[in-house]
Design a protein around this nucleic acid. Sequence first.
DNA 1: CGCATCTCAGGAATACTGAGATCA
DNA 2: CTGATCTCAGTAGTCCTGAGATGC
Lengths: 156, 156
Amino acid sequence: MPLQVPGDAKIPARLRDLPTWLISRNYTRSNALLSDGFTTTGNGLRPYHYRLMTSLKDAGPVGQAELGRLSGIDRSDVANMLAELERRGLVSRVTDPDNRRRNIVTITGTGEEQLAALDAIIEEVQQQVVAPLTVRERQQLVRLLHKLLSEGPTGD
Amino acid sequence: MPLQVPGDAKIPARLRDLPTWLISRNYTRSNALLSDGFTTTGNGLRPYHYRLMTSLKDAGPVGQAELGRLSGIDRSDVANMLAELERRGLVSRVTDPDNRRRNIVTITGTGEEQLAALDAIIEEVQQQVVAPLTVRERQQLVRLLHKLLSEGPTGD
DNA sequence: CGCATCTCAGGAATACTGAGATCA
DNA sequence: CTGATCTCAGTAGTCCTGAGATGC
């Protein structure tokens, strides 16, 4: 449960308004809240697990490579995390008979239950994260953050 | 030079608009651009170093604990990073005669030169980061991100 | 052959914890 | 003794690289 974001006290002038700094500080804060949320229910699941499971539920059974693309997680970590989730019985993996390189990943019933529990946590954390903003500002923020991501991957 | 932010293709509906997700994706993107900027000039300095040095220049000679608070870096990492910077002659540390627990850290001339070079990079990266937004939107974004951080450290 | 998939080993940067030594 | 400071060792979670094995 991290939280080293200073209360915005006497942050150096050069840093204060830099988008990279503000994004970084907000990421840390957001992560702290997220991390607190996940640990207080202590099933040992983490953001990576949530991303995978919710992507899985949304997309239906898919291969790991595709799952990684959907959830923004590297192929290597996908393999690791799925092995964990499989061990816990939250997902299952079977070789695709039509393409035996591929593992078709499916969320299990237990997995869906866990996901529902995580969803509730996630929802509560969102409220905490945007708590300082008005409803209108929250919409603006979401729009702006989307726009930053939407125009080509790097903005070059 | 990371960059695994998907082009916002078919991100799961549940994730797409979550503030925590958007902040996380933007952090990754912002970091990728920052990291590229730092490595292309390859003096081996990283964001942590920049934060420390710019905080140091802004605040003048201070102790490490204070420096950590200003730059949002943990005491432990401050000690590590400053040892590196000192080895390179970019900062100097002397024991405070009035309080011998404390190391007074000062940026050196070479340090200021390096910092100026980093500042130029930082400035360029900021442009890249906010490139997708209009000028007005950039101001909105900065305001909103500030506000998220300003109302108490966690928003509780 | 090229190319995609999965897996494994491991590295890098950030954030954090705990403990010890020092000293006001 | 309390509490602040610095240092060190070590951990966790995220992001990423490289290489190998397999199969299209």
